[in-house]
Design a protein around this nucleic acid. Structure first.
Lengths: 341, 341
DNA sequence: GTATGATGTGTTAACGTTGAGATACCGAGG
DNA sequence: CCTCGGTATCTCAACGTTAACACATCATAC
């Protein structure tokens, strides 16, 4: 089942068959129909190896994501993003080439090697799925990429095609949601402020409370632990002891929120009655805390799909101006906030 | 940077260069050294498209995993397995080709299409990463695979290369662990008994209690909910009301265990003081329950690595007898069981 | 001394696809 | 009439690799 098969079947030359199937160059309408019929009949699928060899470029899109050596658990959100990319690319007959880099700084050189190897395998394009470990970090090798890369960016930028998750909007939505639930002392619990993605959350919070005429109340952790859950716990105990408490909190992450929740429960502070809590990311654990956590869902599939679309657009039109698409977060209502009254 | 480059550089023929680099056929030691030096110098990497084209087979290993349309969260264990495969295959210069099938029965035909498409892309081999949706289910199309497949099997079998997770051993370990922690009324909480993977858990439990001279105590859920967490909750409430309770329970899954734990906490039954609980799989949530769940960790990377190794062995030696490798689970001690005294 | 086998290297063709260029036919315009 | 541009098809070469085969050299064995 190659072009040759069809050529023999139809009595045409291989080249004519090729043109007919791709609709490129001159081709008589009924020749085209005949070829297409024959192709369908024998179940022809173009041989990608041959196509790559001829064209000098692969048909794969590298999906570059990250994992931690010392963590026992992969990041399910990364998997979901990859599935999003895959589903979209399948429609255009591209394949996904998963690339996993280490999150740890000490593996920098190993990551560099991996990327060099990727470059030499000449994919059609790549999606860079991490904001905190930015592509610019690997500029030296990335400069040698002769294929387009779509990044996930903390903020829309002009440096090329990118998809950004609108964290600011998400947090603002959460603040307004808490306001509607009756909260008037709405705080933002921050952690890991070194992360570039922290700005969005913080600015969304500030914008929203300002818009509602509420005072800013930003809770910072003492940063005593690497583990956001533990940070959350210490923060929760502090809150429980405090003379005045917020009545609504948006947390930097679900892990932080889960830690706070555990500490608040243990200290007898009632969630959501005394304090309503909104998490961030909609990790799986958000469904299993007590009470289950209201949280801002990161639309991972959508993120992947958007990135794939930008990449396809770039491949079909290399000269197009850079585009940055923004993806909204969705508030996932559970029971750490009050029910509709 | 092709064989031609090196051939010109060394003054040899392309074929000699090819033989030197692959160490196949006759080659003079110093010729080999010279070629290898030149290859290193120009950073030669074989063009896989050309190799595939010539060889008629791709250099990709399909990693077939599953996801649920209606679930918002991908299965992190599947990602980890894929990373395990990837890490191992990278050493042998194979690429991973991720394939995602729907878990839902109603997408059967769509899955069939996906697999047909896979077959026509001629990968070097495949890993089938699911036991409940067995490969045999797709026997019609699988029969057309002209590449080896390594399966994850519920039990070691003789139907071909496979990797099996030793759930029986895992559960037996857990029972003995509970015994050492002082438990004498050790129960197994079952759910989803239709699953083929349930047998192993059950038989491991029976074997272990028999070995310890303890009575069997199998708790079955009324199966009122699809959701294992909810099943766990109802089960936990039942237990709390019961006149006599086990003092140690091994749960069918972490979700079931987490649900039970929530219900027991809410009912005032002290875990681990009154009842010790062991989960199954070491999902991420196991680290975030109150108290954190002792659980049997599924060594996902290892599972992937083992599958990759079997596949590589098969590719290098197509005639070798079928091999089935068994992978042990590790007990992950947390605080839903008593500390070391 | 020459047949024999082992060793090292070169030549050629093929994998499936596609772009460049050649060929052939047609109708319109000089 | 011949030329020209448009249309439709074909021929050929090339992408990088490797297997089959041919060739050359050398040491050993008869």
């Amino acid at each position: 089942m190659s072009l040759k098969t069809i050529a023999e079947l139809t009595g045409l030359s291989m080249n004519t068959v090729s043109r007919a199937l791709r609709g490129k160059g001159y081709i008589a309408p009924d020749t085209k129909a005949k070829v297409e019929a024959a192709a369908r009949e024998v179940g022809y699928r173009p041989n990608r190896a041959a196509r790559s060899l001829r064209g000098g470029k692969g048909y794969e899109i590298a999906v570059i994501s990250f994992f931690s050596e010392n963590s026992r658990h992969g990041d399910a959100l990364q998997l979901d993003r990859m599935i999003g990319v895959k589903q979209r690319l399948a429609l255009d007959d591209y394949e996904v080439l998963p690339i996993f880099l280490f999150r740890e700084e000490r593996f920098f050189n190993r990551n560099l090697q991996t990327l060099k190897r990727l470059a030499s395998s000449r994919p059609a394009g790549a999606v860079w799925f991490e904001e905190t470990m930015a592509l610019e970090h690997y500029a030296a090798v990335a400069a040698g990429f002769d294929f387009p890369v779509v990044r996930i960016a903390p903020e829309p930028d002009r440096a090329g095609d990118c998809v950004s998750l609108d964290r600011a909007q998400g947090v603002a939505d959460a603040v307004e949601f808490l306001y509607r639930k009756g909260c008037r002392r709405i705080a933002m619990a921050m952690a890991g402020e070194g992360h570039v993605t922290g700005f969005g959350r913080l600015s969304g919070y500030c914008r929203a409370v300002a818009g509602l005429g509420l005072p800013e109340w930003i809770i910072r952790t003492v940063h005593y632990a690497e583990d956001p859950y533990e940070e959350g716990r210490s923060l929760g105990f502090e809150l429980a002891r405090a003379a005045v408490r917020p009545d609504g909190i948006v947390a930097y992450s679900d892990y932080l929120a889960a830690g706070m929740l555990a500490a608040l429960n243990a200290s007898g502070v009632k969630v959501p009655d005394e304090l309503q809590l909104v998490g961030f990311d909609d990790r799986e654990l958000a469904g299993f805390t007590a009470p289950p956590l209201t949280t801002l869902a990161q639309p991972s599939y959508e993120l992947g799909r958007a990135a794939a679309e930008l990449l396809l657009r770039r491949l079909n039109d290399p000269g197009a101006p850079a585009e940055c698409r923004s993806v909204r977060m969705n508030l996932m209502e559970r029971n750490s906030t009050k029910g509709t009254t």
